[in-house]
């Protein structure tokens, strides 16, 4: 195939870190650079890596206790007076538990709140399905005016945390618990709504978000060895979606695989499918959970069991190419 005529761009890493630590580092930097940034937490300071911000800005930190609904309301109120509140708790308690508070007091009221959600998806691991939300992207993207971001590594999470402070409006920032390879450049500017082209290819487009981005890169290496040229695009912003990047890529490849740590219902894949249906109907396969809850286990075991890994991306790529 024509893509094999040149070398594939490959990504390596020297270090693995958790994306939540990227959030903590970004928040700490904001504490030093933006006096309007305030942080709130519902009794999960350590899990959200907020200690540095708190240590350096104790007067700008609000420990709410185990009361997420109250936290969302207080965050909305803090914007009245010019503050930029960053709320921190697990993704499940950042969304499903407080949907109506976000809907009325934040989204409908157009409040400049940054909802920062860790431990999203299956990779929360051993705590099990009560805590492993796989519906949060859908919940948040359905809210008018809400920006939805799901970052892929430490550097990108740090950059996104800093970038959203400069954007006026409600944002849902989703990240996770496990350590994952750091492969995006430390100095890469984070542009909300702008996809990042990782490897160019001609046979299949792979659009991935969050922890699945590294898996997509791994998959592209396997595909390359099979003689298939994959174009891997990192969609960190699910809403607003970079439609142009997706359409431009499928115009070249003619098929697409979407990959996310989320239910296929309501996730990135559905947003992509809508863009394609409206503009350029294209064969698509979904790497996502199949309308199911998760369960307890080691994160990597769970990702394997629920088909959220590079092998699944390879398999779906091979299937979708056949449908061209």
């Amino acid at each position: 195939m024509e893509g094999l005529g040149r070398l594939m761009k490959t990504y390596t890493y020297t270090e693995k870190k958790d994306t939540r630590s990227g959030f903590g580092a970004g928040l700490a930097e904001l504490g030093r650079t933006n006096p309007n940034v305030v942080a709130l937490c519902a009794d999960l300071v350590g899990s959200l890596k907020m200690e540095k911000f708190i240590e350096e800005n104790p007067e700008r930190f609000f420990q709410i206790g185990i009361a997420e609904a109250n936290m969302m309301g207080i965050a909305a109120g803090l914007t009245i007076g010019g503050k930029i509140p960053f709320t921190g708790t697990f993704a499940n308690f950042s969304t499903g538990r407080v949907y109506d508070q976000i809907r009325q007091s934040i989204a409908y009221s157009d409040k400049n709140v940054k909802i920062c959600a860790s431990h999203a998806g299956l990779t929360l691991g051993e705590d099990g399905a009560t805590h492993q939300i796989l519906e949060d992207i859908g919940l948040m993207k359905m809210l008018p005016g809400m920006t939805v971001i799901n970052t892929c590594d430490y550097n990108q999470t740090k950059a996104a945390t800093i970038a959203i402070a400069d954007y006026h409006g409600p944002v849902y920032l989703r990240f996770g618990r496990p350590v994952v390879p750091i492969f995006t450049p430390e100095d890469q500017k984070f542009e909300i709504g702008k996809a990042v082209m990782l490897t160019e290819g001609t046979d299949v487009t792979i659009v991935a978000t969050g922890h699945l981005v590294w898996e997509a890169l791994e998959a592209s290496k396997v595909l390359f060895e099979k003689g298939i040229s994959a174009e891997v695009i990192n969609i960190h912003t699910i809403k607003p979606l970079d439609e142009e990047a997706i359409l431009k890529s499928v115009a070249k490849t003619g098929c697409i695989v979407t990959a996310e740590e989320h239910n296929y219902l309501g996730g990135l894949g559905e947003s992509v499918a809508r863009v394609l249906a409206l503009n350029n109907p294209t064969p698509q396969e979904f790497v996502a959970t199949n309308d199911t809850f998760g369960e307890s286990g080691i994160p990597s075991q769970l990702m394997d069991k629920y088909g959220l890994n590079s092998a699944a991306i390879v398999e779906k790529s091979l299937s979708v190419i056949k449908r061209k």
Partner: peptide, 24 residues
Amino acid sequence: RIASGSLGQGMSVALGAAQAKKLN
């Protein structure tokens, strides 16, 4: 300054605004 109607949310919002006043 805030939408209300779905009940029970106003006090939290007001507390945030009160704490913003203190910061300011």
